[in-house]
């Protein structure tokens, strides 16, 4: 049976490593998603082409194989290697960032052309239009699909265990080898991943509520059920938040 000793020595640090990998690869994926996603709306075809190429390549690439490549092929080719944690983080961030770029591109494309024209009429530069007008308006639309992607990414962090990053899956595998207690160990892992996903969904729901208020759509307040029922606007925002949560 799993000893407290082992849990403290391997499992707790494993949970922390999983959270670290998740955090770093989310930040990287977000940077990639916004950079590639906005570049894909560029006026210049060459920029669109290069960003589109990145998207196509990394969408079609197995994160697992890319991780192997980073961990085992790069050292042979370049003579130096990443810390395993960074091989895993880079592979996850770059592939999931590619998916994210499609969300960003789609949400930006859904901002009405009239908003772009109003921005031009006020002489904003293209960067200013993106930053002050288009991204803030596209942002609430991005959050529900980002929530899905974030949970995919969170579950994908288990892949780093195969390149010897001691995350919680790695700890679980280690413990199974030592004790042969497959059932409790993998049940515990399933529950832990589920809990992480649940927490992430909660956080994203909060984010969505705030984002919607920020574009003047149904500023959501923590009202009682009665007030919510009385205001139609609050109700519809509540409904959409429910849907978003339900998907995750």
């Amino acid at each position: 049976m799993m000893s407290w000793e082992f849990f403290r020595e391997w499992f707790l640090p494993g949970i922390w490593v999983t959270i670290q990998v998740l955090l770093y690869s989310t930040v990287l994926a977000a940077i990639v998603a916004f950079t590639v996603g906005t570049l894909r709306t560029s006026r210049f075809w060459i920029v669109r082409f290069l960003a589109g190429t990145y998207f196509e390549i990394f969408r079609g690439m197995s994160a697992l194989i890319f991780m192997f490549w980073m961990a085992f092929a790069v050292p042979l080719m370049l003579g130096w290697q990443f810390v395993p944690l960074w091989s895993g983080t880079l592979a996850l961030g770059m592939t999931y960032g590619a998916y994210g770029s499609e969300i960003v591109r789609g949400a930006l494309a859904a901002v009405p052309a009239a908003q772009r024209e109003a921005g031009i009429a006020l002489s904003f530069t293209r960067m200013q239009r993106l930053r002050r007008i288009e991204i803030p308006q596209a942002w609430p639309e991005m959050i529900p699909p980002f929530n899905n992607l974030l949970i995919e990414l969170m579950k994908g962090t288990a892949l780093v265990s195969v390149i010897a990053v001691a995350d919680m899956t790695f700890a679980g595998n280690l413990l199974r080898l030592a004790t042969n207690e497959s059932a409790p160990i993998y049940t515990l892992l399933l529950v832990l991943y589920f809990l992480l996903a649940f927490i992430l969904t909660r956080l994203m729901r909060m984010l969505e509520r705030r984002a919607k208020a920020g574009v003047g759509r149904a500023p959501e307040k923590k009202n009682g059920i009665l007030t919510r029922k009385l205001s139609g606007r609050g109700e519809s925002a509540q409904a959409s938040a429910q849907t978003a949560g339900g998907v995750g």
């Binding site: 009239a114 908003q115 024209e117 109003a118 031009i120 009429a121 006020l122 002489s123 530069t125 002050r132 007008i133 803030p136 308006q137 920020g214 574009v215 003047g216 759509r217």
Partner: peptide
């Protein structure tokens, strides 16, 4: 952009920034 700063426009559909 420099020349355009002299010009302002009001649109049929207002086109205010909803955010």
């Amino acid at each position: 952009r420099e020349v355009r700063k002299n010009i302002g426009m009001v649109f049929q559909q207002f086109n205010l920034f909803p955010n």
